[in-house]
């Protein structure tokens, strides 16, 4: 799949759900370089999902604009694709059909479609499950199908809304590593919304802190770390501590002593929708990023 990437330009974005409801967020500005991975962290309700829906063209802003290389984002498009917290696969379709559905919508012929679908399934390491019923897959595998379903469109911008929060720690770590390496390798721009500071440190080139009501971007931090990033790496730990502090400063909450944190005590700032963790062998996906 060819290398892509766009310049993302968000200008004075303001949103409210209806004339009577308060502003969800206001005056959000952001410029992202080609292929840059941006993480947005912030407390529940500050408007992160709403912002992402606007970037995906699924919602219209009240004012302001989103541009990708001077193309205005006004409606959904295969060029900017969103991946949700839950996989939301179509249970009446097999894995390969789920992955190919976007190409089907775009009117691709079967031969070309099969080729591209096989490539995307390869990327997420699900070759042996291609013809399985999606309901027979584990949560992590299902989320990987959802990832392939997005990647198959060869988007320039991939938007992730807490996509791994329902997964167990092993699977989540594997997915974080894989998504970063795949998008980096393909040159895809990434915007990921998360509650998880570790996730931001492990996946992003830059972290934005969103807070307040209406939401605003309070602070940003360049996450300038080499790849591959390991949780235990002191440089990663130090970045985590800085981000944690910036987050608490923005939120106006007392900053806990993060110096001694080993990264597993409080990875989550808020309880996400908790779902029963599923056991999966983390090694299953270990090879994806390193694939040529």
């Amino acid at each position: 799949m060819p290398v892509r990437g766009v310049r993302v330009e968000i200008q004075d974005l303001t949103h409210r759900y209806s004339a009577r409801s308060p502003l969800t967020f206001e005056k959000v500005n952001l410029e992202a370089r080609q292929g840059e991975a941006i993480a947005i962290i912030g407390r529940s309700g500050c408007g992160k999902s709403t912002l992402l829906h606007i970037l995906a063209g699924l919602l219209r802003p009240t004012s302001g604009t989103v541009k990708l290389d001077d193309v205005l984002v006004e409606k959904p498009s295969p060029r900017w694709v969103m991946m949700f917290q839950a996989p939301h696969l179509f249970p009446w379709m097999r894995v390969s059909q789920n992955v190919g559905i976007g190409l089907h919508f775009a009117g691709w012929n079967d031969t070309k479609k099969h080729e591209r679908v096989a490539e995307a399934i390869d990327l997420v390491n699900l070759q042996e499950f291609a013809e399985n019923n999606v309901q027979d897959l584990s949560g992590g595998q299902q989320q990987r199908v959802a990832l392939a379903r997005s990647l198959v469109m060869e988007p320039e911008l991939l938007l992730l809304d807490e996509p791994f929060s329902a997964l167990d720690a092993f699977t989540r770590a594997a997915m974080q590593r894989d998504v970063r390496s795949i998008t980096k390798r393909l040159g895809i721009n990434l915007v990921i919304v998360t509650h998880d500071i570790d996730e931001a440190v492990l996946m992003a080139d830059r972290a934005l802190i969103m807070a307040g009501s209406p939401g605003k971007i309070y602070d940003e931090l360049e996450v300038d770390l080499p790849d591959p990033r390991e949780r235990q790496d002191p440089a990663v730990q130090a970045m985590r501590a800085r981000l944690m502090e910036a987050f608490h400063t923005a939120a106006g909450t007392p900053s806990p002593d993060v110096a001694g944190s080993n990264g597993s005590d409080e990875p989550e700032l808020e309880e996400g929708e908790s779902s029963k963790p599923r056991i999966e062998i983390a090694g299953k996906s270990a090879g994806i990023g390193s694939r040529k």
Partner: peptide, 12 residues
């Protein structure tokens, strides 16, 4: 969410 996913992937 199925409708949202479909719209997101370009369904008419």
């Amino acid at each position: 969410a199925w409708f949202k996913v479909a719209r997101n992937l370009g369904a008419r």
